[in-house]
Each structure stands twice: as structure tokens, then as C-alpha cells.
Design a protein around this nucleic acid. Structure first.
Lengths: 331, 331
DNA sequence: AACATTTTCGCAAACGTTTGCGGCAAAGTA
DNA sequence: TACTTTGCCGCAAACGTTTGCGAAAATGTT
């Protein structure tokens, strides 16, 4: 890009020094109001745009964050990204969004891109295959805060923001119980992810509290297609499943596909509840009841945490956002 | 970010000059193989990462593209973005994705962000409210190529890549005719957008070729909700609509919602066909037949065009990608 | 041996901006 | 009047990298 106006050009025209131009544009107290006004007017007239590369090189400080996700097509990430973008825009930051495809090798390559671009901080949802987060923790040594969100490392001490998984699990189970469901199929995500473990444990525990009168069968699905197959396999005349819990939007799409294929009536023949951001549940009639796991609040929280880290906060925090139940017509 | 290794540190350790280190890492022919090897080994040992800010400042050349879209939740953009990201990654470019919310004022602010970050080029899907594209064309004066895609300016001479709208419209109409649909409701997008005009004209013309035996009613919907209401209004016992064409995924979601609410059987009572990237049609059973308007090929094409512009090509091109019909079970 | 060419480096300037420090003039204080 | 403080600027260096040009040594040619 060929910039048209620089500090030097302004200083030449006004017969003042470059440093004065710089200070005037920054409202530095050492510069007189008269000089400030002249500088600002001319800068505006000349469409002066600061060169962020020069600024970042000089200040060793960039105004770019990276958001790294497995895939941008995951609906949960939309609201997260938009929330972070809103906040970032307020403070003059830009976002670089990098996809990893859930591949650890690409995550490493993405970290390299982050280092080369000297990003100020990284928000990352790791892939399910990511076991070693040392490369991420090393970014902290370079003073680049890393905030994990959604799929976060289970045991390592690191900055994390996530949905309150236990609560989300408990709410869903609670709703099913309140709707007198007796034979429940719970389809959860990747069993190795902490979000899955937490939600499953809370869900099962809540169901178990009701005693032997409630049957719960739990399965795991990593894709919509896997979830679809589980439904075909479990919903046989011998097994009177009366409700299905879907731990994610993706699982919900697979379940709903199977329900339609089996021509089951919702909620008459089968009840459905999901963890969702709301987009998919609203595609169906009656609308699917869901426990909202919106990324929006999470994005705001993650941004706050990032700001704290950039301001010098060095301690590790794991923050959570509560879920809320949104009633549709599927139970 | 606090970099650990710099050219200077390497040059200090090897007792050679900074410029030699730089040239060695770039395989400059003036540097001996012996020196190159020593430099590269030490650079790797020290985890040297070039500082892109310094490079961009010195070379007046950045390796960042901007993709500007109204909203990342639009499914069409996922494949477009992923395609551009794949190509960009191959050539060492990063992507900055900015949302405009379809607001022209935010588009202007985003262009400012692009200038401040000295982006190498911009891929932009403008919002429906954007009338004045002069601010975009001005980026060309700054040697920042702008490639319009999806929602593109109608009349201005500018670089555009889009789906072959006429062909997409014709294919959909052709499919409906081949399935002997006699009473068709066509729901199109914003009537002011060129993609809408082109698809509607081609669609209508194809239907009209069949003579008076085919009834076509066309409507416009800017949201899924508007599409839903149109279906409720048009599908009365007096109006024997036997097929609905949906010009986008968003319109399709509204139409399918209404179809479910009205408890219509697809395809027995009503046929459905849409322009789509495939995600939404696959959520239903039977799957919705669609004319694929995938952003993936478009992304590759857009990237090619961008490369040509960066290599010095100054003439204006409007490039198109053909659509393909994907049969589901909805007709 | 003298001159020309090639190889392989180093110096220094450039990019655009920020910022510490000092200089000078004006105003304030004893 | 002499000294101190304040206001308002400019100089110069810094950031990390690239690159033009020149210098010195080695090699080649007459």
C-alpha cells in the first residue's frame, strides 16, 4: 500500500518538526493548542492515516488479536467472534481469524503466523486432537496472552472462559424430568473433552437423583452423521425412548434428520432438547427447546480477561458463563 | 510481543553483519554457502521469527488480506473464506475478517482499519444498503486491489467474482419444469441487488418459455421471517402452489419453517428447491434439492484475481462461477 | 606483472512513528 | 536584578529489517 500522507509531509508543510506533528496528533500537553489545531486540520485535509506497522515496530505493541477456531462454520463461534469483534473495535484492535481444522499441526503453524504478526493476544478453541498445549503456553513467555474458550485443556493451569458445563448439563436434565420423561437418550460429544465429561456427569447425576424410575442411555457422537445413526439404532419398537438430549447443535442436526426420516412426531412421539445457540432449534416447527450456550457472553468475558492480561494481570483464571433455558415446543 | 531473537542477535553471535544475516536467510546469491548454513542453523536454534512489522515497513508491502462481509453467519461466506484462507496460507498471507453488519458506515470504518493496517488487498461482499462504492474504489488509488464478491455493485466497473446468476436462475426453473410443477411460488432476495435481478429474470424467462400453462408468482423476502410469512400468505386452499423456489439459504429456512407449521408433506404436497451451499438442505428429510451456490470455487477464483492484481494487472474483470444442480428428495 | 572480473562481505541509509532529553524564551518569584 | 520554573518546541535515537553501493580479497586473463 502506498500511503499518501506521512508525519514528515505534514511537518514539511507546516515548517515544524516531525515529533511535534506526532505529539500534536496525540494531544500531548507539551504542544500548544494553536499548533495542535493546525496539525489536526492539515492531517484531516491530507487524509493522514497512521502507519500501524511503524507504530507497532516502534512501540513493540500491536493492535491485532487472533481468534483461532477449528472451523468458522460452528455456529457457537459466530456469536463469540462477533462479541470479541465488537469489543475490539471499541479499543482500536483488529481481529485475525485463523482456522485450524482441528489439526494440531495447523494450530502450530497458526501460532507461528501469530508470532510473525506479533499479535497482542490469542483467543483459541483447540481441536479435539490437541493434547500438547505447551506451544500455546509458550506464547505467554513472549508476553502474548492466550485465552482458551469452548474446547479448553482439561487439567493444565491456563486462562479459560467457558460455559458452566455442569449447570448446562443439570438444566437440561432438570427440564426433561419436569416434563416427566422416563426413557432418555443422551447424545454427548467427544468423550475426551472436558466439556463433554462435565456435562455428562452433571446430566447423569441429576437423572440419577430421581432413582431407578428414569432410564438413561448415553452415547457419544463426533459428527452429525454419527448422531443420526445412533438415533436409528436406539429408536426401535423395543426401546421406548421418549426424549433425546443433544449436547450440541451439530448433534441436534443429526438427530433431527433421523427423527424426520423415521417420521416421528415432535413432541408427541419424541421429545428433543439440546444445548444450542438457537439458530438450529429455530429451523424446525415446533421449535426445539434448548439450553442456550451462546458464545456472545463468553466473547465479552473472554475479551475482559484478555484486557486484564494485557494490563499486567498475571494470575490464571478460569471463568464461566451461566446457561439459560429457552422453551420451544419439542418437549 | 517480546521477540527473543533478532537479526542483530544472530549477527552478534556469528561476528558478521546484520545485512549478511538477512541475505543468508533469504538465500541471497552474494552470500557463501558456508555462511548461509551457519546463519540458518543459529536462526533455527534461536527460534528466530522475522518481525513482519519491520518487513512491511521497510518493503511497504504487507502480507495481510482483508475479507469484509456483512455477517460471518452467512453460510455462503464460510466456504468462500475457507477457500481464500487455503490459498493465502500457501503464499504466506494472513486474513483479517471484518464484519460490516450491512451498515455502510461500518464499511467505511472497516476501510479505515484496512488502510491503517496497510492490507495488501480486500475481498468485499457489500451490504444491501451500500450505494456509494467510491470509498472502495479509492483503495485502488492506494494500490490496494478490491475484489467484490457475492453482493457486488451492479453498474460500476470494478473487479467482481460471482456466481453465474442467470445460469443459477435458469437451472432452478428448468428443474421445476422437468418435475412438472405448474404453480410456482418464487421467493427472491432484495430486489435492488443485481444478483436478485439476474436470477429472477432468468428464472422468469425460463418459466415463461413454457407458455401460459405454468403459473409463476414472485415475491421478495429480506429475512427468513419475511419468507415464512409469504408462505403462510400464499399457500391457501384457493391457491394451488405446488412448488416453492427459495433464492437463498436464509429464505429456505423461513420457507421450511412455514411448511412444517402448515404440516405440509414434502414433496407430496409441496415441492421445494433452493439456491444453497448445501448445509441447510441437508438438515431436512427428505433432503431439499438445490442449485449449489458454493462459495468455495468463488473463493479460489477471487484469490486468483487478487494475485493478478497484485502482480500488476490493472484491467477490470468480472468473473463468474457456474452452478450445479444437486438432487435431494424435495421435488 | 598488470589489469579485469568475480566473490563475499560490511556500511549506511531507508521505511514511519514515538519518545527522552535538552535548548530557548517567557513568565514567575525572591 | 538574578534565579527558578514553565511552556513549547526540535534533535536524535530507537524499533527490525532490507537493500544499494562500495571495498577488499581472490581468481582469471592478457
Amino acid at each position: 500500500m502506498k500511503p499518501k500522507a506521512t508525519l514528515k509531509k505534514i511537518s514539511d508543510k507546516l515548517q515544524i518538526s516531525i515529533s511535534t506533528v506526532s505529539r500534536a496528533l496525540k494531544n500531548h500537553p507539551d504542544i500548544s493548542e494553536h499548533t495542535k489545531q493546525k496539525v489536526k486540520e492539515l492531517a484531516e485535509l491530507m487524509d493522514y492515516e497512521p502507519n500501524n506497522y511503524a507504530i507497532s515496530l516502534r512501540t513493540n505493541n500491536s493492535k491485532v488479536f487472533c481468534i483461532m477456531v477449528p472451523q468458522i462454520s460452528n455456529l457457537f463461534y459466530h456469536s463469540f467472534i462477533s462479541a470479541v469483534e465488537e469489543e475490539a473495535r471499541l479499543y482500536g484492535f483488529s481481529l485475525m481469524i485463523l482456522q485450524s481444522g482441528g489439526d494440531p499441526a495447523i494450530e502450530i503453524a497458526n501460532l507461528k503466523i501469530c508470532r510473525q504478526n506479533r499479535v497482542a493476544g490469542i483467543f483459541v478453541a483447540i481441536g479435539t486432537a490437541t493434547k500438547d498445549i505447551q506451544p500455546f503456553l509458550k506464547m505467554d513467555d513472549l508476553d502474548v496472552p492466550v485465552i482458551f474458550f469452548d474446547k479448553v485443556p482439561s487439567f493444565q493451569a491456563c486462562n479459560k472462559v467457558c460455559i458452566a458445563d455442569e449447570k448446562a448439563g443439570t438444566i437440561a436434565a432438570d427440564v426433561l424430568l419436569r416434563n416427566n420423561k422416563k426413557n432418555i437418550l443422551g447424545i454427548f460429544g467427544d468423550p475426551e473433552m472436558s466439556i463433554t465429561k462435565k456435562r455428562l456427569d452433571a446430566f447423569s447425576q441429576k437423572i440419577a437423583e430421581k432413582g431407578k424410575s428414569i432410564q438413561l442411555k448415553t452415547k457419544h457422537a463426533l459428527t452429525a452423521e454419527a448422531a443420526r445413526k445412533i438415533v436409528h439404532k436406539c429408536l426401535t419398537p423395543l426401546q421406548k425412548i421418549d426424549a433425546i438430549f443433544c449436547m450440541s447443535d451439530e448433534i441436534l442436526t443429526g438427530v433431527m434428520k433421523a427423527v424426520q426420516e423415521l417420521k416421528l412426531k415432535v413432541p408427541e412421539s419424541i421429545g428433543i432438547i439440546a444445548h444450542s445457540n438457537g439458530f438450529i432449534p429455530n429451523l424446525y416447527s415446533p421449535e426445539i427447546s434448548y439450553v442456550e450456550t451462546s458464545g456472545h457472553k463468553l466473547g465479552k468475558l473472554a475479551y475482559n480477561r484478555m484486557s486484564a492480561c494485557l494490563s499486567g494481570s498475571t494470575f490464571i483464571q478460569e471463568l464461566t458463563v451461566e446457561s439459560v433455558y429457552i422453551e420451544g415446543g419439542s418437549l
